[in-house]
Design a protein around this nucleic acid. Structure first.
Lengths: 206, 206
DNA sequence: TCAGTTAAACTAACTGGATAGTTAATACTG
DNA sequence: CAGTATTAACTATCCAGTTAGTTTAACTGA
């Protein structure tokens, strides 16, 4: 039933996100995306303008979501330590709603955000800015020590992204390797990042 | 001067590492690698078997170097806390001798090590194993609390990789963004990771 | 000491297959 | 019937890998 444009568009977005995450922008194949979405390839060019535009749409959606999440946290009325916990949680849950986000973000970092347009880049910058706001507030309230926002940000985002993005690899290794006991649950990992970050901010490190 | 086979091979390796780091395996272009190395494209197929073999060689060299470095640290006679500091330092200096390592490693993680052969994968696993040895020793000597090696490993490697791999992006952003004061030196960053890791291991968190 | 031989190192030009993007025609629905 | 959604088949380009032939350094032995 053509007119109501079923879910072709969203099916394409989902299939494309999986493909881009698994193979990167250059490695992604438009025919394969169409096949996975069970849709004619030409629909990609009907609903989106090009492979690049499709990718851009996915990126934009991802960074919009994260930026919105962490900005809400920063603007809320909570004690600073609680804001930090929720900042971490906001990133993780945005990533879990979009399972391909971590891998795609990692790749964009690796190639200097080559496929990221200025607007999306600003949204990404807003995540760092939101963290900066929280740190500043914590400092004003004498709860946090001075800390470089970039350093704190990397300390949070890098482990989260790597942990989430490497899930497929870890599963693969567990199947091969000899009883690799090094398995960590999502919750344990998040809690660990929250604790470590707060220890840093509250000056409980060395 | 054909016979002495000047540095064609090493020039190709260098150019290829840069290309793979900047664009990923699929995005890398063999003609561009040859041009950058100022060498005829056919030389790639003369000195290496294929694009994949060239990439594999680069990966192998990288993981060999890191594995050797951290294994030397683990085998040395130092107190556990010093071993941890040197473990971090070993990874950073291997990465600095091979500036394209971090971006390439990040990508491999993002795509589940799709282009990594079994031997190279074992070397990568050896890095985690070396850390495990250090943690165990520290525990035996009552210096470290019990800790999940994978969790500690990600806490070290993820920030290092992200910090090193995002250097080009950060430079790009600094040129655009309005007085982004969030600049962190290499040494400050490394020292921070060392301190945080030891705080975790010595049970000084939470 | 040097003509002749060998094999490694190298090149220009080509090939074939993959793939992003197009088009013209068709189905459906309000 | 009007316009949105969809399709099969096509095109043009790009790019990994090949090939047939050339140059050069190192060696041979007379």
């Amino acid at each position: 039933m053509p007119r109501p444009a079923p879910d072709t568009r969203s099916r394409l977005l989902a299939a494309a996100a999986a493909e881009f995450a698994a193979r990167g922008y250059a490695g992604a194949n438009v025919d394969r995306i169409a096949r996975a979405a069970r849709v004619n390839k030409a629909m990609i060019y009907y609903h989106f303008r090009s492979k690049a535009a499709l990718y851009g749409e996915i990126l934009r959606d991802m960074f919009d979501a994260v930026a919105a999440g962490v900005q809400a946290v920063a603007a809320s009325t909570r004690p600073p330590d609680e804001k930090i916990r929720r900042f971490v949680e906001a990133i993780v849950s945005a990533a879990e709603e979009r399972p391909h986000f971590p891998a795609i973000w990692l790749r964009e970092l690796a190639e200097g955000a080559a496929h990221t347009d200025a607007a999306t880049l600003r949204h990404a910058g807003a995540v760092l800015a939101a963290l900066g706001t929280i740190l500043e507030e914590g400092r004003r309230l004498r709860r946090f020590q001075p800390a470089n926002p970039l350093l704190v940000h990397i300390g949070i985002v890098a482990p989260l992204l790597l942990f989430l993005a490497s899930a497929p690899l870890r599963r693969k290794l567990d199947r091969i390797a000899t009883a690799n006991a090094a398995v960590v649950s999502r919750d344990a990992f998040v809690a660990h990042i929250q604790r470590v970050t707060l220890a840093v901010l509250e000056g409980r490190i060395a």
